[in-house]
Amino acid sequence: MDVLEILKKTNAVLKGHFLLSSGLHSNTYIQCAQALKYPEYAEAFGKRLAELFPEKPDYVISPALGGIIIGYEVARSFNVPFIFTERNENGKMELRRNFQIEEGKKVIIVEDVITTGKSTKEVINAIKKYSPKIISIGCIVNRSKENHIENLSIKSLIKINVETYEPTDCPLCKKGLDIVKPGSRK
């Protein structure tokens, strides 16, 4: 399975001038929802990602919104419960809907795309009070420059190096190109 080819075929790889959830700008945006809207790709990505983890978790957890479909598919591959975090009225990520994690349970955090790891770190902070054992982090696309977040390894189906820019140094802004914010973060 060629993950990049599937992403391109489903129009998940966008070109233009984008404001990322991190606040950075980029000329490329990966909209995994375009590929995940096809059940056969969602299932295949979930199975393949689950195979990258050496240990079975007790839970798979994802941040809403982008990580929900792939997180569910990874959990389904492991046949374990899937839960997700979402933002409260103050914009802080937390477990809601009466989701809980028993102390010491093994957890894998799954995202669709990791750029800076900001959402993943928010999930980690949201579940700390439950004292889980976070095994690892997984994603479809790792576009960060790192292979770890808070000493946790990032397992990904594909690593893509895409330029990102601070808003003050963005060559796309200097060209006067309109910016688009396709992500779910407000």
Rank of each mutant, 00 (worst) to 15 (best):
I69L: 14
L52P: 10
F53R: 12
F84C: 13
G71N: 09
P39L: 09
A64K: 12
S62Q: 07
V13C: 10
Y72T: 08
I83A: 09
I70M: 04
N79T: 02
R48V: 01
S62G: 13
E40N: 14
L52K: 13
I68D: 09
Q34V: 00
A33K: 15
V74Q: 07
L4Y: 15
F99M: 03
E89I: 14
Q31H: 10
L7Q: 08
V3Q: 08
I6W: 06
I30P: 06
F18P: 00
L24C: 01
L4V: 12
L65G: 03
P57N: 05
L20D: 00
E86P: 01
K56D: 01
L36K: 00
L95A: 13
F18N: 00
R96K: 15
P39I: 02
G91I: 09
P57L: 11
D58V: 05
E86D: 04
I83R: 06
I83Q: 06
L24F: 01
G23W: 00
P54E: 11
P81T: 08
K47Y: 05
G71V: 05
H17C: 14
K92S: 03
L24D: 00
G16I: 11
E40D: 15
R96I: 02
E73S: 12
Y72M: 06
R48F: 02
Q31K: 10
H25T: 07
Q31C: 11
S22H: 05
A42T: 07
G67E: 07
P54F: 06
F84K: 09
A50E: 08
V60G: 00
V80D: 02
F84I: 06
N88M: 09
K37M: 12
V13D: 11
L14I: 10
R48G: 02
G71E: 06
I30F: 08
K92C: 08
F53I: 12
E40I: 12
N27S: 13
I30M: 11
E73W: 07
F45A: 14
E55C: 04
N27H: 10
N90A: 03
F99L: 12
S77A: 15
G46S: 15
L19N: 00
R97M: 08
R48L: 15
S21Q: 08
G23T: 04
N11D: 07
F99A: 12
S22Q: 04
L95I: 05
F45V: 05
S77G: 13
I68N: 14
Y41E: 01
F78I: 03
E94P: 07
I70C: 01
A50W: 06
K56Y: 00
M93D: 08
I83Y: 03
G46I: 06
F53E: 13
E94D: 10
Y29L: 01
G91S: 03
V74C: 09
K37P: 03
E55W: 11
Q31Y: 09
L4R: 15
G67Y: 03
A75I: 13
